[in-house]
Nucleic acid binder design. Structure first.
Lengths: 196, 196
DNA sequence: AATTAAACTGACTGAGTGCTCAGTTTGTTT
DNA sequence: AAACAAACTGAGCACTCAGTCAGTTTAATT
């Protein structure tokens, strides 16, 4: 691994775990064994380092979703919704270290003043919500999902799933035992009939 | 208003808006016109100031819910769920300045090492989730809500509603237009029959 | 072996931090 | 008016921070 990659990896873990403002360059330097100056040689500023990490995360998430839904086939739109929820939870658990970057305020505050950051966040979230929306639309065609506003319902679904991930991040409640209830609740709220 | 109240109010707004670590004592001093020393005269530390604010917020939220649900009467448990969601959204919009305190990582990170903070957060969240659970239990008695695990479904409901509030906080999507869909989705996922 | 450019270093800077404390002001009691 | 305590002040302290830069090492080319 190159020095640049070492810095990216360590910084990603620290920013995700503690947050941007709570992580110092000197800490990244200590952990990696790379001099502070080297960090600024590879990235023009701490903010630039953050954006490089966010860019990598974006690629991982977008590629991950694209690959998963290119291979997978579902019996119905409703099953695809379940697949999307399950994959999101899997991703959040698998890439916990990098995913939690999105559960701090910093990226959103930065997005308000930095168009590059705004663009990256929008790409990530739109990709996820789009998948939910596609699944709903598909379900409405095959009859597994009833008359709902697909985009709005996709947003509500996403907010539900992300909320549960946040429970774990914030150490408030353990969402592990909520998976089955979550799936059946989503099926009920979308379903065109009594199927669960 | 006493100096102490002025400090609490200004700090609350700044902590909610920018976050704890991103707000300096000198900034609170500047905005209020109160000397920095005065802040430490009234609160033993910056963390102590934060806990005082969180305590006030807890009281507001707990009292708010208690009062609302003491006065209000509902035709069914399902209607009470709708009432709880509506009131939570109302509260989040009304006391935006203070509510957003809970949408930063700091309180949860502090809770991991500070039992007082942990206690305050648990009181707040349990109070809200309890209301949802009560409503579900009531609905199961009167037949408006089907066979679901009341606690788990209460957590899912809360995560949904709070997720939408976060959308607005993070400036990602405007949840304003999602209210009607949210309510009807909740009704569907809880309902024992086809009522919406 | 000599040259050159890219990669890397870490001591340093100046701005900013939470907090302290010796001293001043204010308001109440005697 | 004298005495006292509570409220308040702001300069100063020890410390941390992101970022700089003069200098060194490494690796490839001639």
């Amino acid at each position: 691994m190159t020095r640049k990659e070492v810095i990216l990896q360590a910084a990603s873990r620290l920013f995700s775990d503690k947050g941007f403002n709570e992580t110092s360059i000197s800490e990244i330097s200590e952990i990696t064994g790379v001099a502070e100056g080297t960090i600024f040689y590879h990235f023009k500023s701490k903010e630039g380092l953050f954006l490089a990490i966010l860019e990598g995360l974006k690629d991982e998430i977008v590629c991950g979703f694209d690959q998963y839904f290119k291979e997978k086939r579902f019996d119905s739109g409703l099953d695809m919704v379940e697949g999307a929820i399950t994959y999101y939870l899997y991703l959040a658990g698998m890439k916990e270290d990098r995913f939690h970057l999105l559960h701090h305020r910093y990226p959103y505050d930065l997005a308000a003043v930095n168009p590059v950051c705004r663009e990256l966040l929008e790409t990530i979230y739109n990709r996820i919500v789009d998948i939910f929306e596609q699944a709903i639309r598909l379900g409405q065609k095959d009859g597994s999902i009833g008359e709902v506003t697909s985009r709005k319902m996709a947003l509500i679904l996403f907010s539900m799933v992300d909320g549960l991930v946040r429970f774990k991040t914030y150490n408030l409640y353990d969402p592990g035992g909520l998976y089955n209830e979550l799936i059946s609740a989503c099926r009920k709220m979308l379903s065109s009939n009594g199927n669960t």
